[in-house]
Simulated assay, not measured.
Amino acid sequence: MNLTPTNEFPNESEIASRLEKVQQEMHKQGLDYYLCHDPDNIFYLTNFANFIHERPFIVIVPVSGAITFLIPKLEEPHVQIRSVGEINYLSYFEFPAPKGEMWFDRLQDVLKPSHRVGIESLCPVNVHNAVPGEAIISDIVDDVRMIKSEFEINRIAYTCQLLNEGHATLLEQAAPGHMPVLSHKEISGSMTQRMITDNLSSNLLCTNFAAVSQPPNLSHDPHNFTDVLTTMVEGGPHVTVVAGKANGYGAELERTFFLGHVPEKAKKPFEDMLEARALAYELTIPGNCMSEVDRKVNDFFKSRGYAKNLLHRTGHSFGVTNHEAPFLAEGYEHEIKPNMIFSIEPGIYLPSIGGFRFSDTVLVTESGNLKMTKAPETLEELTLPIKNL
């Protein structure tokens, strides 16, 4: 499959296609309306990025026809500038507001007691309680988001391009004594600047980048970035994390690397991690079960003695977020299908040695998979010469 990276916004046809898929599923479930409160689902259906606060934004999806977007009057011009597609706007003045002028009063101008209304499983209680008819929990939009359109694949491919460049710069800067926080500042700024240069209307509300690494005394604890003054050291394993969303679409790229030499105790875990990774790639193909991919990878690690050194699943998806369904995880009994996108990142974590993990953003194709991110792969390539600061 040929990728054509793009940083453009979705057009009306793309948004209409997403809405059509949602409405088809609503029809199957016998719903009259569906409410989206989750900012990620709202962005997916409108291209408008918001964050949750006391003034709610709610997309009201009918089983046919255009959506209604319930918004604070304060945000109306902003919403109309950013939104894409056929949308009916319904505004409320403020929160709190006098009786009869609250956001839920406007919601009930559309929804009636006779309506069957779908709501997200993470829908806030106050929104749930404002539904006058029967509220049915169903994550329709989240489910539709699992299979990516050609546009989404190419948007994620663009984010991957930025991450590839940022990761290469991070490895170029790696040296004993270097502070990863300095790389983060420079590289995340550079990726943001490149994104804006490529699209001057880029939306910073749905953009974030990280470009960091953990030295061996922290890399066994994959989310521990509490010591911002930590420095790289000779040896390893160091683990990189270069990830983020560019203009609303996420991806990630991670590697384990060494400075100067590879400690003897790190050689076998590194090779075992690569073998588990190869197994995950072999299994992440159309028709296979996501749960089975993770189970077989975990079984492999356990056969090598790492049962107590596993901290996470084999992978997760990307889209309008950095982490979303579907998941390569035991207990997640779903079929892998073409045009799904996953991280493939089996890892092992040894407190006395460090962490061992690669992560790539991977597209499932009709016949296999395609790695969308690029970085060094071998122990030789990832044993970096020591540079003077």
Rank of each mutant, 00 (worst) to 15 (best):
A130I: 01
F95K: 12
K387Y: 03
T197H: 14
L122W: 11
E234L: 11
D109P: 01
A130D: 08
N369E: 02
Y33K: 02
I187N: 05
V141F: 09
D294T: 04
T361Y: 06
T197Y: 11
L31C: 03
F327V: 05
P39M: 02
F69W: 05
H53Q: 13
L283A: 06
F358R: 08
L122T: 15
V117F: 09
K268F: 01
S91Y: 12
V228K: 14
V228Y: 13
Y349Q: 01
S149L: 05
D198N: 14
G235M: 06
M290N: 10
H223R: 10
G250D: 04
D198L: 08
E120W: 08
N2V: 13
E264L: 11
R55F: 11
F151C: 08
N50Y: 09
E14M: 02
W103N: 06
E275S: 07
N50G: 06
E381W: 01
L218P: 00
L205P: 01
T365E: 03
P237Y: 08
K308P: 00
R155G: 04
R313K: 12
I60P: 02
I187V: 09
V364T: 03
V297Y: 01
E366R: 08
P96Q: 09
E366N: 12
N339H: 10
G177I: 07
I137M: 12
Y34F: 15
R18V: 02
L163C: 04
P56S: 02
C206I: 12
H261Y: 15
F356M: 00
D40A: 13
P215Q: 07
T68N: 08
A157F: 06
M372S: 05
I137H: 10
A130R: 10
G347D: 06
P263N: 06
E14C: 03
A16M: 04
V79S: 03
L45A: 06
D272A: 04
K148Y: 05
L163I: 12
G118F: 11
L382W: 02
D272S: 02
G355S: 07
F301E: 00
A246W: 05
V144R: 08
V239I: 10
V131P: 04
F48W: 12
L111M: 07
P351I: 03
I81G: 02
N2H: 14
V59Y: 10
A243G: 12
E152S: 05
L370K: 15
I187R: 03
Y349R: 01
C160D: 09
L259A: 06
V364D: 00
D142M: 09
P286T: 01
S190D: 14
Y44H: 09
E345C: 13
S17M: 10
G248Q: 03
F95Y: 15
V228D: 11
S201G: 12
L200G: 13
S64A: 13
L200D: 15
L310T: 04
K148A: 09
M179V: 14
V233Q: 14
N298S: 11
H316N: 13
A130Q: 07
F258Y: 15
P132V: 08
M191F: 03
V362M: 06
K308I: 00
E186K: 14
E120C: 10
C206W: 08
Y89E: 04
A174P: 09
K245T: 15
D143H: 14
L389F: 08
G85H: 10
H223E: 14
P286H: 07
R277W: 11
L122R: 14
E94D: 15
